[in-house]
């Protein structure tokens, strides 16, 4: 976009956009993904029980988004379409998280540099293989994509949450342990989060072809009680 009679250096322009996007993202609450023996748990702080932050993309792929709801939901739908079309044209096994994450990165990068307003979102794409081993991709508002190991966190307070996840994670975790670790890490030491403020889903091979499974509030409650 050209603005006559006014010069802004590219550095400044990018800096301003990044600040703008970060500010938007930091207002929202965080989401954590934690790998456990045989799956991945995705846990988000979300007071709404209808507007989802965590959802299913494809057989073995889940999506988590934080920031502006309408923007990451648009990304979710674009991801479902991309995956379904790819699966239709080739085969279901050909749909993978790595290529989806790259597509998201391209799209977010394009919007960040070319559009008036960057997307105020941060997303995670999780995939499990047949054994339940996870691949986690974290994609930022400017298209930066990172391949994370074992856990990752997106959203406002992610740095301190990541520290807590790093302290608490070990490879012997089971599903309930992973959910509890995610919840404790999101909450920190000085507050507790109840089941109705949480959105919890897992990707696990025992759920059949569609590995995505969303825990109800009562299921979450009984997991947290352990």
């Amino acid at each position: 976009m050209t603005m006559p009679g006014m010069y802004v250096s590219p550095e400044q322009l990018m800096q301003d956009r990044a600040d703008y996007a970060r500010k938007g993202i930091s207002r929202g609450r965080s989401l954590a993904a934690v790998e456990y023996g045989g799956g991945v748990a995705l846990v988000a702080e979300n007071a709404s029980s209808t507007l989802r932050k965590v959802s299913e993309i494809y057989d073995r792929i889940a999506f988590g988004g934080v920031g502006r709801y309408n923007e990451f939901d648009q990304l979710r739908i674009a991801g479902v379409r991309y995956a379904e079309l790819k699966g239709y044209q080739y085969s279901r096994e050909d749909v993978d998280a790595r290529s989806l994450a790259n597509q998201y990165a391209q799209m977010l990068g394009q919007i960040f540099t070319h559009e008036m307003k960057p997307m105020e979102v941060e997303i995670v794409v999780a995939e499990i293989d047949v054994a339940g081993t996870a691949e986690l991709y974290r994609i930022q508002y400017d298209g930066t994509v990172a391949d994370e190991q074992h856990w990752c966190c997106i959203g406002g307070d992610s740095e301190s949450v990541i520290d807590r996840l790093a302290d608490g994670w070990d490879k012997e975790l089971d599903r309930d342990g992973a959910v509890n670790l995610a919840v404790a890490s999101l909450a920190g030491s000085d507050r507790t989060i109840t089941a109705d403020e949480l959105e919890v889903a897992v990707l696990a091979p025992e759920n059949g072809r569609r590995c995505f499974y969303r825990l109800s509030d009562s299921e979450t409650e009984s997991v947290l009680a352990q």
Binding site: A78, Y82, Q89, Y90, Q103, Q106
Partner: peptide, 8 residues
Amino acid sequence: MSSISFFT
């Protein structure tokens, strides 16, 4: 293969 896209 089409790439990921938004619709108007």
